[in-house]
């Protein structure tokens, strides 16, 4: 059952973050299911509940050849951060980042209520890019929400980000695995659009070079 493609780290620590309602939990479950089907042991720690109501949401994935690890990643130990919202990338890096961490970052902000109210400022995207680059070993910025809206539904930004993750080669994820996983869980009518979103995410990383 053990796959040929070994992990870059054991366990490999992946964090998927965003704001409640962005489809964070589903994205982590898709990645977890793909890795589990490849024979890896997967642990996913999730924080949801009250945090669905506009709050920050974070899923911790531990991917290992064998064994059970804490559903909370130790501080400073993330290998990859997928941020569905750009300022959430910084929130995660503060606790779990390190100079070698890699980051995939959707550039569409979800403004906190305090910003909407006018009490707080949301940073410029140029600053956000600079800071994410400074705090990571490698970073990719993708217009996932814009692409998702072109595909017909902004929620697909999560699937686009999963496609982007696959294209980085950080984990042995492929389109076939993705198709297999969504084929088991999703209504048939939705599969084609999700595959398109996955492909769009792959293309974004490829074109970013």
């Amino acid at each position: 059952m053990n796959p040929a493609n070994p992990l870059q780290h054991n366990p490999y620590n992946l964090i998927i973050t965003g704001v409640g309602g962005q489809g964070n939990v589903l994205a982590s479950r898709m990645v977890g299911d793909m890795m589990s089907q490849l024979g890896y042991d997967v642990i996913i720690g999730e924080t949801f509940g009250a945090s669905q109501r506009g709050g920050s949401v974070m899923s911790h994935l531990r991917i290992t050849a064998k064994g059970v690890y804490s559903p909370q990643i130790p501080f400073g130990s993330a290998h990859m951060v997928v941020a569905l919202e750009p300022s959430e990338a910084l929130r995660v890096l503060k606790d779990y980042g390190n100079p070698h961490v890699r980051v995939i970052c959707n550039t569409r902000p979800v403004q906190p209520v305090g910003v909407i109210r006018g009490d707080l400022d949301y940073p410029d995207m140029a600053d956000l890019r600079r800071w994410v680059r400074e705090l990571s070993g490698a970073a990719w910025f993708i217009q996932a929400t814009d692409m998702a809206m072109k595909l017909g539904n902004p929620i697909l930004a999560n699937v686009i980000s999963v496609g982007a993750l696959a294209a980085t080669g950080a984990l042995p994820l492929s389109r076939d695995h993705f198709e297999n996983v969504i084929g088991r869980k999703m209504a048939a009518g939705k599969i084609e659009m999700n595959l398109q979103a996955f492909d769009a995410g792959v293309a974004m990383i490829r074109s970013a070079g």
Binding site: S51, R53, G54, G55, S87, G114
Partner: peptide, 9 residues
Amino acid sequence: GAPPRELTF
């Protein structure tokens, strides 16, 4: 860079 996200309806 990361303004706090207070919970909201």
